[in-house]
Write a protein that binds this DNA or RNA. Structure first.
Lengths: 149, 149
DNA sequence: GTTGTTGCAAAGTATTTGCACCAAA
DNA sequence: TTTGGTGCAAATACTTTGCAACAAC
């Protein structure tokens, strides 16, 4: 159904939506392709991107992140640290994964799960609530940080 | 184990922690007792409280919400609308409920569930992650707003 | 009388926006 | 050449903090 998200495919996706393919956008995109497993804040992207292109402005980073999230290239997350974090979205993910957030080192790991599907059915029936999306986070300590706790 | 959270009990809880029982704090507490089922932002609390005590400052509201959350009287929530929302915490809730957030009217309803307990066990084993807390939110449309969607 | 608390205004942090200039198509 | 994009600085929104006056204990 959906194609693999290569750099070229994403560029085409932008063009199809009549977004222009500027060097700034390419650089930001490149950054995410080089950090596929990371959950980057705007500030972090800005820092990484400035190595390639020191002229770039923070506002441009924010605007680009918005666009890339809107067209489904990035997923926007809120891990409760007061800033939005973006991750590269692999192809088959409406049915998205959940996050394990380490209170020690701040690292975020992921896990997939289908259990919530059945839970949603119960909620729809019991609460008369039409569910479009869900967000599940676990807070705790990862293997490395877990010793003392 | 834990007592019912009456106004008096909460006042004692504050005193035990050597927090002073000021009229401002009493008014804010009162406000939550009168809106047990609501998820109020600092600004909303501020508005409600000003009726009783027009002298009160917004900073005092923020400080009091912090304290009440810290001692477990209130639960601090983030529903992704850019502000923190506080709800009165009933007595037996480490094992807390989850939220259904309506994208139409912004209303937040609640539901209890035990399904996550078994899920946590799986995660602990598979990911070597010690879970302290979880946060589950469903986004969609409530019964009233659901018609068009 | 101590010590914590208040109100205010200023500062802080993340994000958005207005605008003149610039560049992709 | 048209249309959208960029960088910058200013504005916005929520929250926190410094501080002198004040009130609970």
């Amino acid at each position: 159904m959906e194609e693999v998200k290569t750099f070229e495919n994403i560029c085409n996706l932008l063009r199809n939506r009549s977004y222009k393919l500027t060097p700034q956008r390419q650089t930001i995109l490149q950054t995410f392709l080089e950090h596929v497993d990371r959950h980057l804040s705007a500030e972090e992207v800005y820092m990484l991107v400035k190595n390639q292109n020191p002229e770039i402005g923070l506002a441009t980073v924010y605007r680009t992140l918005d666009i890339l999230a809107e067209i489904g290239i990035l997923l926007k997350n809120d891990f409760g640290d007061g800033r939005s974090r973006y991750e590269f979205s692999r192809k088959d993910e409406h049915h998205h994964h959940h996050h394990l957030i380490c209170l020690g080192c701040g690292n975020v790991s992921e896990f997939d799960d289908d259990l919530l599907e059945s839970l949603e059915a119960v909620i729809i029936k019991r609460n008369q609530f039409k569910i479009l999306d869900h967000d599940l986070k676990f807070y705790g300590y990862c293997h490395e940080c877990g010793e003392g706790h």
